[in-house]
Amino acid sequence: MVPLENYLVLSAILFALGVYGVLSRRNAVLVLMSVELMLNAVSLNFVAFAAHLDPDRATGIVFAVFVIAVAAAEVGLALAIVIRLFRNRSSANVDEAATLRW
């Protein structure tokens, strides 16, 4: 049978890949995809803990549902912002949206 540690390590790898994506990508949509990877790693962690440590209360499952709902809301909003950005600058490059830095 598959022990809990396997899930945790898998989730850690996914999270690290997501962090790398967020730090290195320049296209806003790609940054968003990497954020999705990280959120997925987190909810995988929650579900693994819920199934292995505390199946009676199902708290981790509820948390995973909330994470998925928040991710859906976040994707909707973020993509609206990306489309807005693209309309103003005809580029989805996050490095170019730096007006606030001045």
């Binding site: 690290a16 790398y20 967020v22 730090l23 990508r25 320049r26």
Partner: peptide, 14 residues
């Protein structure tokens, strides 16, 4: 370019 010049540092952190 889809990946910025900061990619190696990102890889280090990750």
């Amino acid at each position: 370019p889809l990946t910025g010049a900061q990619a190696p540092f990102g890889a280090l952190v990750a």
